[in-house]
Design a protein around this nucleic acid. Sequence first.
DNA 1: ACCTTCGTTGACAGCGCTGTCAACTACCAT
DNA 2: ATGGTAGTTGACAGCGCTGTCAACGAAGGT
Lengths: 346, 346
Amino acid sequence: MAAAATINDVAKMAGVSIKTVSRVVNREPNVREKTRDLVLHAIQQLNYKPSLAARGLAGGRSFLIGMMYDNASDSFLVDLQRGILRACRERHYGLALCPASRAKDHTADLMEWVISTQPDGIILTPPLSDDQSLVDRLIEAKVTFISVSSTGTGLGPSVLIDEEDAARAMAQHLIEAGYRDIGFIRGPADHACSELRYRGFEAAMKAAGLSVRSDWVKAGEFDFDSGVTAAEQMLSGPNRPTAIFASNDDMAAGVINVAYRMGLNVPRDLAVAGFDDTPLAQHFWPGLSTVKQPIIQIGQQATEYLMGLFEGQAGAESSDKKSTREQSMLLPYELVLRGSTGAQSQ
Amino acid sequence: MAAAATINDVAKMAGVSIKTVSRVVNREPNVREKTRDLVLHAIQQLNYKPSLAARGLAGGRSFLIGMMYDNASDSFLVDLQRGILRACRERHYGLALCPASRAKDHTADLMEWVISTQPDGIILTPPLSDDQSLVDRLIEAKVTFISVSSTGTGLGPSVLIDEEDAARAMAQHLIEAGYRDIGFIRGPADHACSELRYRGFEAAMKAAGLSVRSDWVKAGEFDFDSGVTAAEQMLSGPNRPTAIFASNDDMAAGVINVAYRMGLNVPRDLAVAGFDDTPLAQHFWPGLSTVKQPIIQIGQQATEYLMGLFEGQAGAESSDKKSTREQSMLLPYELVLRGSTGAQSQ
DNA sequence: ACCTTCGTTGACAGCGCTGTCAACTACCAT
DNA sequence: ATGGTAGTTGACAGCGCTGTCAACGAAGGT
């Protein structure tokens, strides 16, 4: 393993004490500018990188951001990681992954991971962010956390898009394209966004004076198979919808699959819309109209927000915890219109 | 943050010195069984987890496995992570991610990451494992590493499937299904597997007494768009193949997409086979026949192998480095036959 | 009985860094 | 000059653990 310069080397080279180097590295105030330059120069010369292990041990922090996830789609996970890593790299933090176990009560496992890893903050993804018991344990353990893509339980700050409005916009697009008999496939109950997306759909229908037929609203599990099942039910009866809005892309893919099997042309006989803009959506023929969330950006912003939270804590401690807790940050979504709803060919 | 028991607590509770606890934790020899039980009991009672930071700092190791990747598909990345994490969890290692930067010369960036993170070992994914200059720098820096899913440059051990044989088997399946005019889409040149998969295809054709038409062999980049381009070229001429074997699923998806646009029925007019068994493959209609690699298992095995490598090093040092270097580990692949090559409906 | 050897255990230093606190330097007001 | 204040710096302890080495007792050979 290649040698790495230590803080001692830097201190010697700059002609100061190691403590001063430490101050510069940590951007602490009260260092003369001249001294700072001297130190920075030495750091650059030696290509010095502080040791996370030593910093963590001495400072009582781990310089680790934890990312907890469960059952999320691959592309969501990877993009979120990208965003988080981008934020981590700048501040010399590391990322520690914590996939939820398949155990019945995963809360205990997750908390054990928290205890053993001691991340400085945690990023919670759906559906974990909507898991009241987990959130409670986290608060009880005084761990700083933030959730992404989820309004969660109202506890903890969150970075996300306006799910309801996005769903409303997509439904409105379908209506404006001339579809009036529109079915909807909901997400699972343990995801808070399931309800929000449905509400958006409902709002658009109501605004257009259209009624929502209850037999055209099915529950799904956000996976391909449940999309297939829901579509089969909706499309097998004598009265079939002319459009189906699935609340995520995997289920929409299931719908398209069923349509093909039944000999229905998409979008002529059936329009299909999804949500998330997974790679799947662009690779299908016809392309799937969907809602794109800026996942990478969400990850990055959430991480920066999170760092601000626990770095601020040190100074302000018991000041206005409550007010920071309730805040959430809204990022813009994007309607991606493709062939599956009658838009341009690809 | 919840309190975590320290080694001192355990030592006190078990009535031994901290060093003895350390011995038990590290599975060192020469601890009386009775003592070990005592310590283990105390560890369990207190739910003690050793601090990675302290262990790393004191022992000169980081207890971190590095995973370097670049441009890999989402599902590959996530599955590999799953496997690596599974192995890490057992031995109380952490996983540090290192996505390659988009910079022209990413080798320097990657090495900087190695210096600053100091992982005990690194897992290299394609195409990084086939990057001679990176591998050279790694060896020069005396970092232990292993590559996955790649024969690499012949340097360093690797865990993978027999790519050539897998491709041969898939091609043979096409031939046995009655297809004789078979096109092939290669992967990019910087992936070692591109050549291997092509060789397998060639071997099967040769064995069946069929000739490989050079205008039916196109180069691709392992992404959807290049699959589209290659398919358009192959299918637009007067003499079109009746089957196309794309050397990964994304490109195969591109082929199917083109087929739809041209009004060709898959598999009646055109059979399509892929490689990798991404989620895409099962969600397409018809389902895509493909080769499934046991990615999770590859990740896990590679990690365990890697750990053995650098843990063994301490004891044996300069013994038989060479022999361990050259070894690679072959895992079984699986031919997944779906509708796109005329197999059963789904 | 004696010395050796080996298995078992603990005392202690120190990994690279940060927190605490004290020292020292201006610089201003008295 | 004298004291006070704020800005700047370094000495030092210690974070939780591991490596080294020495101490001790038990087993075996003479």
